[in-house]
Amino acid sequence: MATLNITYNGLSSDLPLELDGHVSDVDVRRIALEVVRSGGAPGLHIANLREDAFVHYVVDRFRGPRGEDRIYLRPKVPFGA
């Protein structure tokens, strides 16, 4: 069991994800698009989300403190100053 975190438009949502092997970044973006459109991401339901909403988003993958996979789909953060 992995957790997919989606951050979009200032909102963030965690959802459990059953993964059968590795999923590519493209797959993560596709899954996120479907989940957000369908209302499967708690607090982040956008039925008319644009097809390219996550095209420039970054996929981060980490191991959680209990060994679980955590996948983050987030906007790029190029700026600081």
Binding site: G10, H56, F62, R74, P75, K76, V77, P78, F79, G80
Partner: peptide
């Protein structure tokens, strides 16, 4: 680091950080 649209930011230590390019 901060997203261009001002909706999201990250604080992350270098061992887990990869700098993003501009879109």
């Amino acid at each position: 680091a901060l997203a261009a649209d001002g909706t999201f930011g990250l604080v992350r230590w270098d061992e887990r950080f990869v700098p993003d390019a501009e879109d």
